[in-house]
Design a protein around this nucleic acid. Sequence first.
RNA 1: GCCCGGGUGGUGAAACUGGUAGACACAAGGGACUUAAAAUCCCUCUCCAGCAAUGGAAUACGGGUUCGAUUCCCGUCCCGGGCACCA
Length: 885
Amino acid sequence: MDAQYRPEIIEPEAQQHWEDTQSFRATEDASRPKYYCLSMFPYPSGKLHMGHVRNYTIGDVLARYHRMKGYNVLQPMGWDAFGLPAENAALANDVAPAGWTYANIDYMRGQLKRLGLAVDWSRELATCAPNYYRWEQWLFTRLFERGLIYKKMATVNWDPVDRTVLANEQVIEGRGWRSGALVEKRDIPMYFFRITAYADELLSELDNLPGWPERVKTMQRNWIGKSFGVEIHFPLRKFSGSEVLKVFTTRADTLFGVTYVAVAAEHPLATQAAATRPELAAFIGACKQGSVAEADMATMEKKGMDTGLVVYHPLTNEPVPVFVANYVLMGYGEGAVMAVPAHDERDFAFAGKYGLPIRPVVRPVDAEPGLPLTAAYVEPGILFDSGDFSGRTSQDAIEKIALVLQNLALGKKRTTYRLRDWGISRQRYWGCPIPIVHCSRCGDVTVPEDQLPVVLPLDVKIDIGSPIKKMPSFYETTCPTCGGPAERETDTMDTFVESSWYYARYTCPDNDTAMLDERANYWLPVDQYIGGIEHAILHLLYARFFHKLMRDVDLPSRSPGSPKIDLAPTGGRSDQKSELGVKLSTSEPFTHLLTQGMVIADTYYRDLGEGRKQWINPAEVEEREGITVLKADGQPVIVGGTEKMSKSKNNGVDPQSLIDQYGADTARLFMMFAAPPEQSLEWSDAGVEGANRFLRRLWKMVYEHVEAPSPSPWLGEKELPAQLRDFRRQLHQAIAKVSDDIERRRQFNTAIAANMELMNALSRLEGEDAPTRALKQEALEAIVLMLSPIVPHICGSLIAALRPGANLTDAAWPLVDESALLRDEIELMLQVNGKLRGKIRVAVEASSATIEQAALASPDVQKFMEGRPVRKVVVVPGRLINVVV
RNA sequence: GCCCGGGUGGUGAAACUGGUAGACACAAGGGACUUAAAAUCCCUCUCCAGCAAUGGAAUACGGGUUCGAUUCCCGUCCCGGGCACCA
């Protein structure tokens, strides 16, 4: 054994060994429990950043731990390879998106391998490859035919100068990021996944996911936003229900407090009124300025204008003015809301601004309404000034009002969802082409299966706008139905579509005749999914939706003449079924979810004017005399917030130099030790030295142990002396703790700390006699095995030194010896009035009464009782005694 | 603005189910070894008072529940994530 810890030698050797022996190749095996461990695949942005190191180390620790526990482990890796940054890079550097993407994949694959992940690389996939997105297009055609995809108009950000659609991210302070032009809203046709058809199931099945963090389930519940309310119709003419304005409200009890209704700028009533009133038309035009992002809509100044139109209250027939308001969204609900300033904060503010009446109709259950209202009273309560409904509770009134409205045919109870259908059309190039042909005679026709995939042309010149929209060789085609001239759809799909089913494709990435085969139902669901908390809603909801689609929609491939593939491990069964593909047999994709906290770093930028910023990497700045400056020119930079490491803010820290200098094990150890996985982590490389020092110490300890002359082996014939018994108890307590930390608590920092403590105790153990050596051997083996999921390279070398001939890849996790945990005395804390005053040692089996007596007799307690009588004694078994005086 | 988290020494953090606040590290200071340096090893290290024994205070801030609160409840401030076209 080498006396020195040399990661630069042992790490490449270990990685080469894993590759040569295909150590992490996963095959279906019915005889062992399976464990599918998946980390969210990376976008190939160019280089790994610290968030990746954190994510993939967590996944690798769990995968390796379960392998040691005897599971058949699958841990795959791939690339979320379509997306906007490739187009941005193409514009900036004049390279084709495909070339840029594949070059990044090659570089980052090397970096991932250098991290030493126990990944089955034979299953690697990239979503931009036709053999992947082909099946996405294929599923699209099936869903389209079944009505689960449909087309409708939707609002996008439009840059009037660049004449292009902008992502929300590309709109900065209301202006296009490149042109600086004021952004407008524009309606265009788009394809939508009917995710709302699954809203109820997506909501209710959250209750069947005990392995998900509560906060993620809460976020998804709120996002789906199921609410029970009443649809209310306001007649456009007095005493006539033939033409109505529909609104939806969860607060029908406040109906008598309505003092106006507000409609969206695009609402037909607004359009109608604007025809004769130029100032209103101008206002509606102004409403169309700005981005479509909800955060922008919600924070902008609430503005409105009277249309001059009135509708009539469905119960009182009083006229109610109709306003156009910029905060009402056409795409949500009916595009109109009833406004009750007395009982809604937003309406209260709006009414104050435009001098609209405020009419309170609900008071607190146990108080008079504090009139006049100084703020909206938004809680439920008791109705007043509400006709026949006065005196009823809010809950009761909602029911009765709904019933009366229903009898008048002016309303009905309705359940609504905040969740909207998922618009997936993108007016971009670098994405999966939507497999639709537009025919002037047949309408929208899906591309037949034998013509799939619709391949995205790669040899393109990128400037502003999608090149395939200007490429007749791509879009000119014939109609699959009538054979006449037709045009291909040139929009591509949202990249969230690819990431919604990749986890399933990993189970059978080599199948070129079907989207999925039996192997999917062997491996799925994913047992452990690991990824950033930023994906808590969108990605995870879409993936859950897709899993249900793949469960419900028939997936067989009927390509004539497609070659049969043999899935049976024994090679015996190659009937027709194996060629057909399978439906998924489960309803949820991810059994356990670990949401990693973000790795965040400071951001720095320089203002380029018109809202444009040049983001500067933290590595390029330094502090000089208290001012943050760019190293290159010494001029100051602006310090932005601390945000998640991202390409767009250029605040990612490249782990490569860390790995080059200290090795992958140090990087992995340091990352796991810095904070628990779910907590966000502000990046700082202070402490890397300490992690490296620990590994050197571990190496040295094993080296000194195995190189020491060995006395005759101890066979455990005598009882250990007390000191060794104490140490052995500590050892087995540590094994129990580390197992629990990794398996249940998912807290690796404390698992590492427990091993550090154990090593500190071990280094204090003197002597080279047979029992001491045997115990040292036992402890070192346990420590090396317990650390091996975190630092696999060094532990591979160390276990081979400790157990000649042993190999880490088939080593088992150490077992707790329960008999070593027994002890006969414990220490209890003594409190007087809740303050710590001393401690006593008592026998393990001592009764509460004995303990109480011992505590009261203790001088530490006596001193602080100051002669006062005992009011109460609280004995917490195994912990403490609190004397209350 | 709305939804979801978080806030503990100089720093990263620990305290798992309401029961010893600061484990384990980093940094810093002191010492040993060395011709010297690096490496390594040992010691100190929340704040205040005190020579010390010890006492008091302290888990963002203000309140509450409890014998006992970092932990539960209410309010405030600050930081992070998401808000449907970044991924």
